[in-house]
Design a protein around this nucleic acid. Structure first.
Length: 318
DNA sequence: GTCGGAACAT
DNA sequence: ATGTTCCGAC
């Protein structure tokens, strides 16, 4: 049930609603309690604020640290959240308690020593596969096709993402084979990423019969992918390392992202092949693949188990 | 400020 | 399940 509180300030987000170019998967919304009008979750709300220029004085991404953000005005953020949730008594103490519940879910963690500073575990939220130059189709809206099953998808145009999320999407890769070659998403034990199984993946795939590149989202539980087709641009599927580590170190904030991520000169090879493009972060990807930057987080069951470990209970993230 | 337990609400 | 409210501890 929506209250009318969101008429002021930022809007509430219905199912698969696009927020400044960012759509969240259905599973991220509450399924119960109010069918048909799932409520936004706090971390969505935070992302929403972070996406919007007008709230930059209230909450903003921390430069140089992907996924890290600072609540510059805790009272205001709490007020906005309270307004959204029709909880006029909301304050930062309560909001921060809700944020702390995200620690165990590993949606967020606290940046120690920095006041009001938290960091999203983006690498756990979405796994990206499409190189930006592949997805970058500014003139063409993304077409979201939803197969009649399982996958509720998030489609995130690179062009419109906030910087950390975009960077994450541009640097986090998984599953690079064409669909018919792709092995099913690795279980946490096999992939080494104990968490990625929990989330819908943002993958690149040439689905059967697809002439154009598309992005495929799948969850690690349902095997039916849902396809999000982009404009017919040449597929430059690259053989990125199948990552299992955390997001990559940040690029220089001065470095234009898309510029930095444009495909470099094609590496010499006997024939054209996907993956022959030089990607500036490839060595980092390789390092990650080698496990030199393995995530420090302990294992957590994924969406398959629909829950994370917790001291007394195992909250889900679905 | 931050943390997390506990009871409670939706 | 996901907060909200309260609160004691650090």
């Amino acid at each position: 049930m929506y209250c009318n509180c969101f008429s002021e300030g930022i809007r509430a987000a219905p199912v698969n609603y696009w927020i400044s170019g960012l759509a969240f998967p259905d599973w991220a919304y509450k399924a119960e309690s109010s069918p048909g009008s799932r409520q936004i979750q706090l971390w969505h709300f935070i992302l929403e604020l972070l996406q919007k220029e007008e709230f930059r004085h209230v909450i903003a991404w921390q430069q140089g640290e992907y996924g890290e953000f600072v609540i510059k005005d805790p009272d205001e953020v709490a007020r906005l959240w309270g307004r959204r949730k029709c909880k006029p008594q909301m304050n930062y103490d309560k909001l921060s308690r809700a944020l702390r519940y995200y620690y165990n879910k590993r949606i967020l963690h606290k940046t120690k020593g920095k006041r009001f500073t938290y960091k999203f575990n983006f690498s756990k939220l979405i796994v990206a596969d499409c190189p930006p130059w592949k997805v970058w189709t500014p003139s063409t809206p993304c077409l979201l096709l939803r197969p009649p099953a399982l996958c509720q998808t998030a489609l995130v145009p690179v062009a419109e993402q906030s910087e950390p999320l975009r960077s994450m999407l541009c640097t986090r890769a998984t599953g690079t084979q064409p669909a018919r070659e792709r092995t099913p998403p690795q279980p946490p034990e096999a992939s080494g990423d104990k968490d990625s199984s929990s989330f819908s993946s943002f993958g690149s795939v040439l689905g059967p019969g697809w002439q154009n590149p598309c992005c495929c989202f799948w969850n690690h539980q349902g095997d039916l992918p849902s396809f999000a087709s982009f404009a017919p641009v040449p597929c430059l599927c690259c053989n990125w390392a199948h990552l299992s580590g955390p997001i990559l170190p940040p690029l220089s904030s001065e470095q234009p992202l898309l510029e930095s991520l444009k495909p470099g000169p094609r590496l010499p090879g006997p024939m054209w092949m996907p993956g022959a493009w030089h990607f500036p972060g490839l060595h980092l990807l390789a390092r990650l693949r080698q496990g030199t930057e393995a995530p420090e987080v302990p294992q957590a069951p994924g969406i398959g188990g629909k829950s994370w470990p917790r001291a007394k209970q195992a909250p889900g993230f679905q």
